[in-house]
Design a binder for these strands. Sequence first.
RNA 1: CGGGGCGUGGCGCAGUUUGGUAGCGCGGGUGCUUUGGGAGCACUAGGUCGCAGGUUCGAAUCCUGUCGCCCCGACCA
Length: 607
Amino acid sequence: MLSSGSSDEIAMRVSRLMLVTLRDTPADAVIPSHQLLIRGGYIRRVTNGIYAYMPLMWRVLRKIIAIVQEEMDNAGSLQTLLPQLHPAELWEKSGRWQSYTEGEGIMFHLKDRQGKALGLGPTHEEVVTTLAGELLNSYRQLPINIYQIQTKFRDEIRPRFGLMRSREFIMKDAYSFHANEEDLQSTYKRMEAAYKTIFDRCGLITVGVDADSGAIGGAASQEFMVTAEAGEDLILIANDGKYSANQEKAISIAPNKKVLNKENPSILETSNQNSIEDLCTSNNLDPTQIVKVLALIATIENNETQPLLLSLRADQDLNDIKLSNEISKILNAQVFEIKPITVEQLKIQGLSDWPFGSLGPDLDNEVLNGAKSWKKTFLRCVDHTAADLESFVCGANEIGYHRSHATWETVGGIQNRVDIRTAKHGDKCIHDPTQALEECRGIEVGHIFQLGRKYSKALEVGFTNEAGHQEPFWMGCYGIGVSRLAQAAVEQNHDELGICWPLTIAPFEAIVVIANQKDEIQRELGEKVYKNLLEAGIDALLDDRNERAGVKFKDADLIGIPFRIVVGREASLGKVELFKRQTRQLKLLSVEEAQKQLLSEIFANKG
RNA sequence: CGGGGCGUGGCGCAGUUUGGUAGCGCGGGUGCUUUGGGAGCACUAGGUCGCAGGUUCGAAUCCUGUCGCCCCGACCA
């Protein structure tokens, strides 16, 4: 046993830290951050998508949590702690129980000994909205903004990348309640600002992007992305930085078209021309002169299935998120799934083959006659890129034939003009056509939504307004993936030797390495430096292990403590080395000077 | 769920094609040496080869089934 120091002090010694680092990269980790967190002994997998946070990791998480708490508190949000087990009735009332538990639902659920159905909270709109309904009765009590930091459960279809997409994770979620939309918008702006401060303080480079609000629903929403190669989302950013969006949502100006002169319509023989490319080379056409037609099937509320016939300019790609939103708007119904129609599906529906490859925008509804479960008329949508063509080539609804110089009048007109194309790298921007979109990948660490009145209406909760009438709340919700953020920080801050934590969220600010534990002079000086740092208020760690210097250096590089003081062979001369992990800058200094410089660097960077 | 790959000491892997009773590196323990970039030597502990059936004199190896993990897609903080 060590004779001196409190138990805290003992735990700050590497020899007592339960630290196990791995020399080899674990086979099941693919991206750098996941590999490094496991190799550095930060996390251990317990089962699929479920991880244990080891002491170093928990220190990182606590630092992130402290920053989040400070900024949320500053922004006027109240911390709470809500239950993790939710009764099914609450979710049935909001209409989400079924979609969240059945099929590809993400809610873990169970029955208690009374046979009552419960779910483990993947998010807390139901619970929090119900509470608000019970407690907030008057506009005089509004607005209210509350948050919690807590473990969330989502039975992900495919957990992966360690903490990046796990089934149990730490999240900060906040909910705001307002008497009107303007007030919601002002809190939304305040949260946006708080989020920027939080990510800045965590030492992360993030971009706020326009986002699709997905399953949660609602109006405006913005995602905060940590830019990194391993990111699962593709984001588009204008050169001037004035516009940025998730590709799922991004809008842009489509590339210029090659005008096809107006001439009398004619029929093209196109047998064996099975792709747009074939069609172009064989007939000397440009893809921008062709309208391609896609047949899809949408599954909507009440298990109804609506066939879709979509027209896009042939050089453009369909964006299925935009499509889903447009279809939902047109039908005024929830869209669950949209899939391409295949020959097999036609068979199942008892339909004969369609002229795939030669579909035209005017494909007759009679091809749906006799369908077993599908609706019998197409919902037809034309993307702006196709609608803007005055003369074009398109399928003739007969295998082996296309129509040349068609116009919308000759192919049945345009019923729904929509934006369903995918914006891409290089496209011109709508806010300023001299600017182009750049693409990069991002990890979503935060998402803020203006929910509107979706949940307050569904759960029938509201307040009495100034006029004395009952009204549903206006709501916002604001999430930060705390454990994901920790891993994203590693993804953005590492090199070939290991992690380079940003100072503010590093498990320790400095590590004192005694090169040779058996050298009494080194050992005593190392202990002294360590003690001095602690007394100066530095989060310091002492590597007192009886290991060779090389092993300690490798481990220190791997676990990524921002500053390192090496007490080694110059210890007898009163000299130590000050090493900065990020830049690998190394200075041989007197003990006093090294400590002084370390303190000034740390206090300067902590802000 | 669809498509691909993999399960062999704590970790990384070989052995499987062509059946003969399990091996390498790292890690762990002990001792000596070494001591500023994942040390050397010696000794040592640790695996019913994912699991269950089957074929065979004999199965990590062949067959059937099953479970788990990883990658690509649908989901999301």
